[in-house]
Nucleic acid binder design. Structure first.
Lengths: 322, 322
DNA sequence: GTGACGGATGGGAGCGCTCCCACGCTGACG
DNA sequence: CGTCAGCGTGGGAGCGCTCCCATCCGTCAC
């Protein structure tokens, strides 16, 4: 029995007689044979491996529910396709160089990029190297070639629309990082909605954070220190909203009576706060799946849509009750 | 210039003249040459890649601060050694089979196993295949060949010692999963300490959870439903303590006045609760580093200690104040 | 009975790299 | 001046696999 036949069986290609197939499988079982992936990759030029690069430090990645959702979606879809996921956190110093080196050494079929900040060299570097790449979310200043994102503009709008609809007029926005389109768009959407409701953009108090709970606390404190307390607050992430909730309470303001509070993500934490948190749900798991879908298309050389935008949905809970 | 010389330069082996080295490096820079890792692996039989398998679903891994700490330690130490980390979550259905297949296909130099439950076939399978493996924590029933763990027995003891020292006598333990040694030992340690303080083991209320916040709520509710409320509660994880805190408050019991509460992990969340949470600190990042250290030793064929036990330290905060 | 056809099979070639051997050159020593 | 040691270098061999071509055998039509 030649190597050719064995190879055919293991890659279940046609034109193999049942007898030969059985013989090969029996031999494989008996010898505990496991094909050498390096050798296979060397000739097929594929690795059946996809890497996810998150440009944040480990603490952030593991602390924020947003990432868990995305990774789940990615992992599920990749498993269906029979591919392995390599997770890399390139937040720390030197992480980027190491990631770039790894990625270009031709042992991944494609790359998923998450949480891109401004001036990240990775997308263009990878494109230049010919590694198929799909981004989840984009930096504020540039637009990656293949992008899956949620409609942050509409999400921000829906949050403020709701605050206004429940009678709030003195608004504050605790914005996310302004070097990411998600941070910027949520803010812009919120301001658009305020304006549409007849509120001057300049009258909306804005403080910038980085999506973390700690930054939410800081931003909320900043807003309270700067002027009269708002009666409606939109935080760009649930974690920031949780931080804000604490600061508001410490300042003697009741949520939702004195202040309506809206978060973003619709993470599990929303149901654990008191009151429960109204939030803009983003379909994180689906976003992960779609990213993989687009990437698989690119790897296969198929024509794929360069941009995919997923919609958000407002989930109303106690923190904005009237 | 022959391939041999080029190879020598790229692997910076000695016996290369400076002139040849410069020439090679110049050529590399000019051509944008990147060595093919598959080809290298094929001949060296090394991949410079280590995989971390966490036997939990994604949600858990990303939700629990414990994992973030371990991964940080692992990532740091691995980066120092110039190795890549592949993160695999094998919690979902079929995850184990896929992981096992991947791991045995000879593209990882070693495996780190985390959160092993009883009857996990992975450790013995990998040993049989000759893949160097190091476990972080062990299942309740078996003992992996190479193990890095924290002293859960002493940790559980220190928690109850402290409760007793602050005058609590009616104790409850919200235990972790009993198919893991960490869950079992923390409970046993706690009961040992109770007994040492003259409290009958049988009088300590015990409810079992799985380290999650939700399970902490359930376990606390179970204890409250079963008899008179305790005045001292030891939860096997901080997340469980947070859940318990909520249930205690809803039951009209004040922490720390009516009930003293101790968690385990000393996660960031301890400082975010009200009152702040007394907790048993476990050196998670260091545990990650040590796991890598042992694994690197095994990969290099060095003699390494089969067992390493790291000590815990009680951090006292408001939740046990008197 | 013979020729043509098609599916199954065996094996050569080669993927890109490292390993190692052999060779050439230089410098020191007899 | 010849010889030998030793560093640098070039290139053959081979890692384990897939691809593809040539071959073989069984089948069917004429």
């Amino acid at each position: 029995m030649g190597r050719g036949t064995a190879s055919r069986v293991l890659n279940d290609s046609p034109h193999v007689s049942p007898a030969a197939r059985d013989a090969v499988l029996a031999a494989v079982a008996e010898l505990g044979y496991v094909p050498n992936r390096a050798a296979r990759s060397l000739v097929t030029r594929r690795t059946d491996t996809v890497v996810l690069v998150v440009s944040e430090p480990e603490e952030r990645v593991f602390g924020e529910p947003y990432f868990a959702g995305i990774v789940r979606g990615i992992g599920e879809r990749l498993a269906e396709a029979g591919l392995q996921l390599v997770l890399t956190m390139a937040g720390a110093a030197g992480g980027h160089e190491r990631a770039a080196a790894y990625l270009t050494e031709q042992h991944v079929d494609g790359v998923l990029l998450l949480s891109l900040h401004a001036e990240d060299p990775l997308p263009s570097l990878l494109e230049a190297r010919g590694v198929p790449t799909v981004c989840g979310g984009s930096p504020a200043t540039s637009r990656p070639a293949y992008l899956v994102d949620i409609d942050n503009l509409a999400g921000g709008r829906s949050a403020v629309d709701h605050l206004v609809a429940t009678g709030r007029r003195r608004l504050a926005v605790l914005a996310g990082p302004q070097d990411m389109s998600s941070g910027r768009d949520r803010l812009v959407g919120a301001l658009d909605a305020a304006e549409a409701a007849g509120i001057d953009r300049a009258e909306v108090a804005v403080a910038v954070g980085d999506y973390s709970e700690e930054s939410g606390r800081r931003a909320m404190a900043e807003v309270l220190a700067a002027g009269p307390p708002p009666d409606g607050v939109f935080a760009a992430s649930d974690l920031m909203a949780v931080g804000a909730l604490r600061v508001l309470r410490e300042a003697g303001l009741d949520v939702p009576t004195d202040v309506g509070l809206v978060g973003f993500d619709d993470a599990a934490v929303c149901r654990h706060t008191d009151p429960e948190l109204t939030s803009v749900r983003q379909p994180v798991a689906r976003m992960g799946r779609v990213m993989v879908e687009v990437l698989l298309g690119r790897i296969a050389g198929r024509e794929v849509p360069p941009d995919t935008v997923l919609q958000t949905r407002l989930v109303v809970r106690g923190s904005t009750a009237r």
